[in-house]
Design a protein around this nucleic acid. Structure first.
Lengths: 211, 211
DNA sequence: TGTTACTGACTGACCGGTCAGTTATAACGC
DNA sequence: GCGTTATAACTGACCGGTCAGTCAGTAACA
């Protein structure tokens, strides 16, 4: 009966190990995490893990590579579909998606790992740069172009816009998941996303009421 | 002659060690850094370091505690002086200061360390929260209040504003110092700061020309 | 001669990675 | 079905390197 636990399913192993690795790395950080703990959580012995991954670093790389693309591709698609018609709504959905993802500790575990480990590992930094940042930058550029072309947006600097859109999402992630500093006034990620969009779109300085 | 090196200056040691620690931690990260390297850079042997600090963790804590307050206090003062008279200029100076600091690898080393190590060490997280984040949040609140009272700012959510102002600074730091991703269009931190302020103050959506 | 500041060889714990050995399953003959 | 063999999947004790932290001893001053 619970013999199922001992069944051999070599095809499923790599993903199981990566799931366990994400959980353990997320809880303890890469350096503190022990390969044996990852193995235990995946229901294996340490040796078995090394049948599927050549090193602890390789696990982290595979992890980043796997989860990195997902968000970036989702963001890219969202922009590709929404930007031409209604850039403002596309921007709102994009930030809403990002902030919701960043508020969930399970989903944000991978980006958080990148943030803490990229400085140590040039390989991870390079991966993330090409698989996420470059894609995000391109998508942002396209969104901006579409908005400017249709008169919805001002022609601002793309890299500044990238920082103004992505930065608050990172800040939100850091504040909530690392410093346990939830905002007192706004608790729902979607609400926070709306407040951020409002600021990004309309600015802090009031508009003259003369429309 | 180079006997000067062996002169005893026990009072100066702690700071010398912390300087060395900041440099080594900044270059290699906390986990990778060896206490012996810190000692060497401070012109001491490993044992001597342990006369002044009880552990490697204690060095990191002292480091964070020391450098944490500086920026926060500078920001607080800047706001306290500038906000009542001209909130918009105060905001511009604040972001300019932050972004310039973040662009300098030497100055941003401490915040970067906090970012990478706070998840592992509750003590550091707590320190930073009370010594930097709470102060920054208070200052931001005061700046906002002053601006709203004088009609310069709209009454937006304080935590959203904090994310919109601080986030891009963090993003800039991460992009430039971790991912070596300098913007193609803007290279000078001050210029980037101006572009960011422009976006934050006036928003992405163009204003009706009817003033 | 006593005290203070410091040295650096050493200890012990820890953990990534290995590999000789074990077990479950499949394959085959009968 | 039922032993027999082959092999893929897995185990966990062990090895080797690293490094935080210790401490017996030394050098510099007062």
């Amino acid at each position: 009966m619970p013999q199922t636990a001992r069944k051999r399913r070599p095809e499923a192993r790599p993903d199981e190990i990566l799931d366990a690795a994400l959980a353990v790395f997320g809880e303890q950080g890469f350096a503190q995490a022990r390969v044996e703990d990852i193995a235990k959580r995946a229901g294996l012995s340490k040796g078995a893990v090394y049948l599927y991954f050549p090193s602890k670093d390789a696990m982290l790389n595979a992890l980043v590579e796997q989860s990195a693309g997902k968000l970036a591709r989702a963001a890219e698609q969202l922009v590709a579909i929404g930007a031409p018609g209604d850039p403002e709504t596309a921007l709102r959905s994009l930030i809403r998606m990002l902030l919701t993802a960043m508020s969930d500790p399970d989903i944000s575990a991978a980006p958080r790992l990148v943030l803490t480990e990229a400085g140590r590992s040039p390989e991870i930094a390079a991966h993330y740069r090409s698989q996420v940042l470059d894609i995000a930058r391109r998508a942002m550029g396209r969104l901006l172009e579409a908005g400017v072309a249709s008169g919805h947006f001002r022609p601002v600097d793309r890299d500044a816009l990238m920082r103004v859109m992505g930065g608050p999402c990172i800040a939100h992630m850091v504040l909530t998941t690392i410093f346990d500093l939830p905002p007192k006034d706004i608790t729902d990620p979607a609400e926070m996303a709306d407040a951020l969009c409002d600021l990004i779109l309309f600015g802090l300085v009031p508009r003259e009421e003369a429309a």
